[in-house]
């Protein structure tokens, strides 16, 4: 048969140890599924969404309240987007806590991290598309943070905003990034990432000589598990989307007028908390970049997991990486809780 991408990902048999739920949590596969849901629901939303300051919030209201199944469609897109962020974070945590980033998978770890950043950018640009009072300050603060970068900030700001201040040019740029630019980049990196999983010898387990378990599963069983996961996740997503609506707020009348929502979107609350401490560039740009850099260096700067300890949780040999990641995750959660608790 002609080789194709599907068969690349689904060889006739694989070691059973590579496809245990308890090991992978199915998080990577779930993320692929959610990305696909986002592509389809997002493409359908484009038939109603109007990316101009005057119409954007109204078109989202129309989509939500009058278009048949429009509200459901929007909720599906919204919840799939939030879940994708959570699921990729869970996947990242599992990769580090199982030491699966060890060579030869170091490069694929970086590709994964790039996907993680792309998902955050997707979530932020999508959130801005609502163009209602809920997003107003996040847009102002986010773009002004870009401006705070020494030397390059002003140029980056103009490229991002499309003018000296936020306006119609800004919305259309965020829209272009959200539905096209990021989609193109994301699709490319996503294919590369899952192509590399098989290229690197499938999901990390000990090398053949050190394996204790010899069992293998067939292609059919792998696909059965994938479909089962899609059915479960898909049903849960549908259920939540039927009962829990995505947030919506009154349209923005004037970008400078007081807005109802003063909290950043939930995934940036930890940054908002740090911004209270002073210098915007230091706390709003450098600090998050340092967190990202620390994540990127895990496979390169810390002790490597031992080959015979692969394929299970918490190998002793990569304790340092586990401690570092736990500390970072704990810090982000703590800052988020502080931000939720504070009155601003």
């Amino acid at each position: 048969m002609r080789p194709n991408f599907y068969l690349h990902l689904h060889p006739p048999t694989i070691p059973a140890a590579q496809a245990r739920w308890r090991y992978t949590l199915g998080a990577g596969g779930t993320a692929v599924f959610l990305a696909f849901v986002l592509l389809v629901t997002g493409a359908l939303e484009m038939f109603f969404y109007i990316p101009t300051p005057g119409e954007a919030a109204l078109s989202v209201q129309m989509l939500t309240y009058t278009v048949p199944f429009g509200g459901l469609l929007r909720n599906l897109h919204f919840w799939a987007a939030q879940w994708l962020l959570v699921v990729s974070a869970v996947h990242l945590v599992r990769v580090v806590f199982t030491g699966a980033y060890a060579p030869p998978r170091r490069f694929n770890y970086l590709l994964g991290l790039a996907l993680f950043v792309l998902v955050i950018l997707f979530d932020f640009t999508g959130y801005i598309l609502r163009w209602d009072q809920g997003i107003q300050w996040a847009l102002v603060v986010g773009t002004n943070l870009v401006k705070s970068i020494p030397l390059l900030g002003e140029a980056f700001y103009q490229i991002l905003v499309g003018g000296a201040q936020i306006g119609a040019a800004t919305l259309i740029r965020f829209y272009a990034w959200h539905v096209f630019g990021l989609t193109l980049l994301g699709a490319g990196v996503l294919f590369w990432h899952i192509f590399r999983v098989r290229r690197d010898g499938g999901i990390a387990i000990p090398p053949p000589a050190l394996r204790t378990q010899r069992e293998r599963i067939f292609h059919f069983e792998l696909v059965r598990r994938e479909i089962a996961a899609m059915v479960w996740v898909g049903s849960a997503l549908l259920l939540v989307s039927i009962f829990v609506p995505a947030p919506i707020a009154p349209a923005i009348t004037e970008i400078t007028a007081a807005a109802s929502e003063t909290h950043a979107p939930w995934f940036f609350l930890w940054v908002q908390q740090m911004l209270q401490w002073g210098d915007p560039f230091l706390w709003g740009v450098l600090a998050p970049l340092v967190v990202l850099l620390a994540l990127a260096l895990i496979p390169y700067a810390l002790p490597q997991p031992a080959p015979d300890e692969l394929g299970r949780w918490f190998p002793k040999s990569n304790r340092m990486a586990q401690v570092l990641l736990a500390a970072l995750v704990g810090l982000v959660i703590l800052l988020t809780l502080l931000a939720i608790g504070s009155k601003v």
Partner: peptide, 18 residues
């Protein structure tokens, strides 16, 4: 970072980072 401050009895307060 550019949010609009609100007048208060003591002057002005910013809703974004206090």
């Amino acid at each position: 970072l550019g949010c609009t401050v609100e007048p208060t009895p003591q002057g002005f307060a910013c809703p974004c980072h206090g």
